[in-house]
Design a binder for these strands. Structure first.
Length: 473
RNA sequence: UCCCGAGUAGCGCAGCGGUAGCGCAGGUGACUGUUAAUCACUUGGUCGUAGGUUCGAAUCCCACCUCGGGAGCCA
């Protein structure tokens, strides 16, 4: 059993910096590869996730466990290294660590270990989601995702927004955003039935909460409650959609940021949305240089210029009516013909943002018939104060609106949408007591990570994706 | 959910009616301040599952399952 002395601990990221040359340090991590030299030593590539790059550890053959352990420690093994950071005589790195002691903490059988030195497909890596963070790609995605989350909090915190935790389990049977997952503790084999009903309806009064409950599809309605007291708030947490969507842009469980601002109209909403996205992109460019270089080289060549371009340019703003006009006059043939009143299809959105403007586009003032009940009705009574931010490659990344603050109009709109205003008594109270103009939007975290990294499939930007027929890990 | 496409060794793929192949990974050996190291030899597969056609099916037909691309729904 090898034991090492107690030295200052250094991350792999730090050990790569020339300023540490001459220091005696301790490192730990996982072996990426081992290369042996007959000249009397072996090289270990050691990675601990602190950076894309691994550090080269030089293991001389006079280490006591060299023959017995180190020559058998390859990809996947966890090791602890003590040694000196030295200038590297080899090409490809400024520093390396000359080991005085290497302890193998956990072995790894190379014959059965699924990861290889050579690249494997993302499809295969999805089947080993528990091990894929050990690859360069998923390490980079995790670090960039972390930076984006930090920027989200920084942006709002610096502006005095209050972070509000809205519930994950909700009693609203519809929040205006798609199919929901049911939450119940009832016995699914023989659920209690309502008395006197022939059809055998389930009696949710006997359920845990005494009513039917679901996983939230949006924190917006709860967020509005806090915004109409604390002025500016944001929610940031998981949301759930039980839609049978099988695409590279949809998840059943995903994270969403939803700011809500009182005393704010649609223009203010659009300004915040634009500043917000630019802040995230700027932070990633400044703080994740190494990872972004990797994405530019291996995943999507355009990723750096795309982000830089967006940070430096103004978003295009055009009304839905103008957008339809532009599409009609484009001469472009679409699978779905354009006509005022229809919802814009993916192909239309992408044509606008990718072909016409080549930068983010904010489309606003959509027809009332295709948007949610809570969006403020314009004076023309045909359109609502909704806005979508469209970006090249991903399409819709933000959806938001100024909210309807007039009680009567909101009630009418609810009924139009087939909702029962009585069930939303608490939401309507916000309009009964001290109502104010307010607005907000939702940003899908995973789509943002996709856009920033250029990763083609949304299943590869969340650690453990939940999609139809898939929840293994 | 709909329309395409694909499921052959641990991974990436070829074979497309006549007794299963390549590259990488793994193993052994050689060589080397190496860096996706290189060279030689080598282990490994009831060809997604279940039916059918045929003397004979990885190959043709049917169903199902899973995965991928696109669409719808949306973030």
């Amino acid at each position: 059993m090898t034991t090492c002395a107690n030295l200052e601990k250094l991350s792999v990221k730090e050990s790569l910096k020339a300023e540490h040359i001459g220091k005696k340090v301790k490192l730990s991590g996982w072996v990426r590869t081992r290369r042996d030299s007959k000249a009397g030593f072996s090289f270990f590539e050691l990675n601990d996730g602190s950076s894309m790059k691994s550090v080269q550890v030089l293991a001389p053959n006079d280490l006591s466990n060299y023959e017995s352990e180190l020559l058998h420690a390859g990809i996947g093994c966890s090791i602890e290294v003590e040694g000196e950071v030295v200038e590297s005589p080899g090409k490809g790195q400024a520093t390396e660590v000359k080991a005085t002691c290497i302890k193998v903490l956990g072995g790894c059988d190379p014959a059965s270990y699924p990861l290889q030195k050579k690249g494997t497909s993302f499809e295969f890596l999805r089947t080993i989601a528990h091990l894929r963070p050990r690859t360069n790609s998923f390490g980079a995605v995790a670090r960039v995702r972390n930076q984006i989350c930090k920027s989200i909090h920084d942006f709002f915190q610096e502006r005095g927004f209050i972070y509000v935790h809205t519930p994950i389990i909700t009693g609203s049977d519809c929040e205006g955003a798609g199919q929901m997952f049911k939450v119940t503790t009832l016995d699914l084999q023989k659920p209690p039935l309502k008395e006197g009903t022939k059809s055998g309806e389930i009696n949710f009064e006997e359920d845990f909460f005494g009513k039917a409950t679901n996983l939230t599809v949006s924190g917006q309605l709860s967020g509005e409650c806090y915004a109409t007291a604390l002025t500016n708030i944001y929610t940031f947490g998981p949301t759930f959609r039980a839609e049978n969507s099988n695409t590279s842009r949809h998840l059943a469980e995903f994270w969403m940021v939803e700011p809500e601002m009182s005393f704010c109209n649609l223009e203010g909403n659009m300004e915040v949305a634009e500043d917000f996205l630019k802040r995230i992109f700027r932070d990633v460019l400044n703080n994740c240089e190494e990872d972004m270089k990797f994405f530019a080289e291996r995943i999507d060549k355009t990723v750096l210029e795309r982000l830089t371009h967006i940070v430096e340019s103004d978003f295009v703003r055009l009304s839905y009516t103008e957008a339809v006009d532009k599409l009609l006059k484009s001469g472009q043939k679409f699978e779905f013909p354009v006509e005022w009143g229809i919802d814009l299809q993916s192909e239309h959105e992408r044509y606008l943002t990718e072909q016409v403007f080549k930068k983010p586009v904010i489309v606003y003032d959509y027809p009332r018939g295709i948007k949610a009940f809570y969006m403020k009705l314009n004076e023309d009574e045909k359109t609502v104060r909704a806005m979508d931010v469209l970006v090249p490659g991903v399409g819709e990344i933000i959806g938001g609106s100024q909210r309807e603050e007039r009680l009567e109009v909101l009630e009418t709109r609810m009924k139009e949408s087939g909702l029962n205003p009585e069930e939303y008594w608490w939401y309507l109270d916000l309009r009964r007591y001290g109502t104010v103009p307010h607005a907000g939007f939702g940003l899908g975290l995973e789509r943002t990570v996709q856009f920033v990294t250029g990763m083609a499939n949304i299943r590869d930007v969340i650690p453990f994706p939940r999609t139809p027929k898939s929840a293994e890990f």
